[in-house]
Design a protein around this nucleic acid. Structure first.
Lengths: 106, 106
DNA sequence: CAATCATATGTGTTAATATTCATATGTGTA
DNA sequence: TACACATATGAATATTAACACATATGATTG
């Protein structure tokens, strides 16, 4: 390995995280949650996805610890245990905008 | 849409970016580049991937503007046009570490 | 405890993506 | 010009992931 090689830590962990975030519907779900806790029915409504599909993606996010379920009666509320994630997403979005600008300039 | 819904901007653009970063070998390539420009042969060596495979992933990264090719004689050097990307990757890695800790605590 | 609502899960199908093999293109040099 | 080297591309296959359908589980209400 070269001395100038950048250390990305465990590439595996990073890539599985990005894989989760790479699915548009999962991103939608995360964004629709925002800083609030919402029942699945809410998520279904705001994302306009099928119940099965939402449940499918929630499972993936849940198992990765990106969302946390909390039962309240018949409903299960989901929230982001660490809202810092939203900041990171914002950073990327911001970078993307800047990056696009540069590309058009160059 | 709820007033508390977090705006992730164009989910589509974000997800295509994450999709690029979700491939372990592409991450490896980005990290192996670091802040330097390197010929493809270097990348092949440090990632231990096949030539075809490296070329395949470089194309994807190139078309998204994440790496930039520059011919020098028979060699083509690739570099990150915007090293800020490495910082973002570092942020995610850092978050991942913290996040893992929390999960074990909780 | 039957009926209903909210959510999850198992299975099969389909679409997307990575990987390899064979080959092409472009560059330097004898 | 012929040859060797660096990299790219096209086609075929393999792997993976999303999605839909049917059904199961768990909670509430009468």
């Amino acid at each position: 390995m070269n001395i100038n090689t950048y250390d990305c830590g465990s590439v595996k962990h990073l890539s599985t995280l990005f894989k989760l975030l790479a699915e548009p519907n999962r991103l939608k779900i995360l964004c629709s949650l925002g800083l609030e806790c919402r029942p699945v029915s809410d998520i279904i409504e705001s994302t306009e996805l099928s119940q099965t599909n939402v449940s499918f993606h929630l499972r993936a996010l849940r198992e990765a610890g990106l969302v946390k379920p909390e039962r309240k009666g018949a409903f299960i509320y989901y929230c982001l245990p660490d809202p810092e994630l939203l900041r990171l997403l914002g950073d990327f979005r911001h970078w993307l905008e800047e990056h696009q600008k540069e590309k058009t300039v160059v």
